[in-house]
Amino acid sequence: MIVYALRRLAAIALILLVICAITFAIFYLLPDDPALDACGKSCTTERLADVRHAMGLDQPVLAQFVSYLTGIFAGRTLGTSGLECAAPCFGYSWQYASPVWDLLLDRLGVSASLAAGAAVLWLVVGVVLGIMAALRKGSLLDRGIVLSALATTSAPVYLIAALLIYFVILQGELLPFPDYQPVLDNPAAWAASLLLPWITLAALYAAMYIRLTRASMIETMAEPYIRTARAKGLPERTVVVKHGLRSTMTPILTIFGIDLGGLLAGAMITETMFGLPGLGKLTFDAIGKSDQPVVLGVTLLAALFITLANLVVDLLYGVIDPRVRYT
C-alpha cells in the first residue's frame, strides 16, 4: 500500500507540473497584459517597458516559468523591485500587493469551513434519505424524497442562496447577514455565519447524493448475499447497515472525494452571494481583474486537492471493501 501511495503521489506531482505548464502557457497567450494593467490609464510605450521590466515580465516565457517553479521550492526575488517572495512562492499578486501563497492560506480557512460543514450536512442528509427511499421503494415516502431531490437538483445554487437570503435574513430577520468569523475566534459565530451557506451547498449536493444512494442501495439490496444474510436470520438493521450500506458507500465515496476536493478550492457562487472571503471569491475577483498569478495559484491548489482527494478515496476503498488490493 505504501508503494502504491508513493507511486500515486509521484503521478500527482507530474499532473500538477503539466497543469502548471498549461495554465502558464494559456496566461502567456491571453491578450491581457499584467504590465499594461499595472501601468495605468495613459501608459506610454517607454513607461510600459519600464513597468514590465520592474515586474520581471520582460523575460522569455520559459525563463519566467522556470523562475516560477524554482520559487515554489526556493523562493525568489520579483523583478527589479527587490520584493522577496519566500518559499513556497506561487507568484505575487500585484493587485493585492501580496505573495499568492499568503492569499491562498488566508482564504483556505473560509473555503475549508464551508466545504467541510456542507459536506457533513449533505452526506448525512443525502445518504439517510437515499437509504430510506431505497428501502421503501415505490412508496409515497420514496416518491416524495425523489421528487424533492429532483426539484432541488434543478434549482441553481444562486436561486437557493437568494431565497434563503430573502426569506431568512431580509424578510424573516431570523439571522443577520453572514459575517464570517474564524472557528477558533468564536465557534458559535463561525457556525452562525456559515449556516445558510452550508444549507445552500448541502441542498444542491444532498439531492444528488439521495439519488445516487437510492440507486446504489436498491441495486445492492437485490444482491444474492443480502438475501443470504437475511436467510441466516440477521437483524434487518445489520443487513442494511453492515452488508448493504458498506457496499453502497463505495461509489458514493468516490464521488464524495471529487466533490469535496473541488469545493476546498472554493465555491464561487455561494461565497460570492454570502460575501464569504474564501478561495472561490478570490478566484472570482482575480478573474475579473486579470490577476493571473492568483488564478494560477488557485488552479494549482484545486488540482492538488482533487488529486489528493482521489488518492485518499482510493486508499479508503481498502478499508471499506477488504477485497480491494493495491497493485
Partner: peptide
C-alpha cells in the same frame, strides 16, 4: 514616477 509604483495619475 517609479515603475515599481505604477498605475497612478501621470
Amino acid at each position: 514616477m517609479a515603475p515599481d509604483i505604477s498605475g497612478g495619475p501621470d
